[in-house]
Design a protein around this nucleic acid. Sequence first.
DNA 1: CTGAAAGCGCTAACAC
DNA 2: GTGTTAGCGCTTTCAG
Lengths: 337, 337
Amino acid sequence: MAVTIKTIAEELGVSYATVSRALNDHPDVNDDTKKRVIEKANEMGYQPNAIARGLVNKETKTIGLVIPDITNPFFPQVARGVEEAAATAGYNIFLCNSNWNKDREEHYVNALLQKQVDGLIITPSSEDLGHLKKLLKSKIKAVFISSFIPMENYTSVIVDNVLGTEKAVDHLIEKGYKKIAFIGAGEERFANKERLKGYKKALAKHNIKVRDEFITSVKRSYDQESGYELMKKILTRFDKSKLPDAVICYNDLLALGTIQAIKEAELRVPEDIAVIGFDDISFSSLSEIKLTTVAQPKYEMGKLALETLVEKIKSNSDKEFKSQIILTPELKIRKTT
Amino acid sequence: MAVTIKTIAEELGVSYATVSRALNDHPDVNDDTKKRVIEKANEMGYQPNAIARGLVNKETKTIGLVIPDITNPFFPQVARGVEEAAATAGYNIFLCNSNWNKDREEHYVNALLQKQVDGLIITPSSEDLGHLKKLLKSKIKAVFISSFIPMENYTSVIVDNVLGTEKAVDHLIEKGYKKIAFIGAGEERFANKERLKGYKKALAKHNIKVRDEFITSVKRSYDQESGYELMKKILTRFDKSKLPDAVICYNDLLALGTIQAIKEAELRVPEDIAVIGFDDISFSSLSEIKLTTVAQPKYEMGKLALETLVEKIKSNSDKEFKSQIILTPELKIRKTT
DNA sequence: CTGAAAGCGCTAACAC
DNA sequence: GTGTTAGCGCTTTCAG
């Protein structure tokens, strides 16, 4: 049996209400008894039961964080931002990894709801939020990362995706590339749509016709392997002379895979084909890689998400919140362009 | 007000015990009422309150996972193993990132204890467990990863570190390298001690004298930057002719940094200096990197840790558990040796 | 300043 | 099969 407030009350011959008060540093309590209680508590190794406390207070001081791929360094970086901000705000994080799987995501969101988290930060695995209806019904405070949910009460922390790919295309064209392909992440992803929009917008600006056969998408897992395989297909699909001379990838992982495929085909990066990624994960800056990429402020995004979530939690009123917090991406020009 | 078991009992005109039974699929309940209850529950969007349930049942179906650096891809991989095993066992994970900081680690462990997690998986930031005394006192079920705590009741999931570096040295010597340096992670780390032991053991086996000046350590953060800086120092400390011709690093991140430093000094890897890492993070196999490294079965380690933890939780008896589960590392020979 | 008592939402005897 | 009740550990009125 763990030591509870009651045990220590008995030891001291006071009521357990007093103990509770003393431990919570309540003003109305004799300094002396307070001291005695605290001493005893330490002596007995008392640990408050947060579960019981949560039942009474209706707040658990924990927030749920649902990400789709802990294996993509982008997300650990975001998670660190969330977590450190949480630590300073006095919250703990439930970190769940959906693996881009809707069912798992739904399962986690439900579990989190049942565990009475005070709020939720989520990068949904899909823009179709049907599986999250309980979330939406539950009126829980939530903020989204990298995904825009056009609904009141929710705010999204995102990067200006359109601007990101626009910068990428501008840079490519300035460097003389003309046949620019886009390796995306599936039509349904919000960020993908936006990045594609920026791509097309920039091409139009430079009077370059959008070529549908230059726009492709991997499905589900946005990792090196997918990038590798898709690029390989592209490499065989076109005559050598008709190949794109540059490709913009949805993220760095995809870009890394793309580069592998290009090199394997005995082509050079960037001389034959230039490659640009998105995210700027730490490995992209290694001297062997030096991937040109559109950097997202990952840590800040996590931090901001948590801070606005906490604000929302604390303002129990119907205060208005921005529905989007848009950060500016930065093009890091390295050696693959 | 959220909908509770009581609300739906009132709606249906039954006692709330019945509702509880129906919802928990208890045998002693009329099939018909069960159906009615479940329907009503869905209709009203009922979500059980896991907090209340935990208070009664004295189990929360959640386990805490404390890792030191979510930014090192080794740990996300372990975390995935833990999490997926947890999902199939019906547990949720509290993921905490201590950032190699003892205070934060202590803070997290306490928070986790207060939140009544059913068990703990932890890679301590330090072998000196003083800051975790509450953990040790609390008799909570725990398993350690990558760190051996010689105490009954605790089990550690580790890799055979001695064997790992032994293999590395053997390989190097076979390749003709003789002046092998070791870039470690501080004396106090268990895994570091073991890896150093393997290094010395293997050198002895090959009749090569251990040279203290070839054994160095980074402190605190075991990342690329630390590796880079330390190697840079080594490169300036020795005359060109007296430089090591190979270096074994405590982990892949350090090795990546080491390689940067070597190349920056206009030396070649592996011709001038060979480099071996430890872990085999996914980026090490990129064609631009191709780091020779001692691979750890990261995912399996996480999975195993969780599974034995769950076993421990379920066996409330004083059943004996192995104090160490030792997996075998595998040397992946690539291009840096 | 301190104690008694209610109640958070749920489960599990114990009756009926 | 179903209702009643106690109680998990804690906070918080409400009295005194």
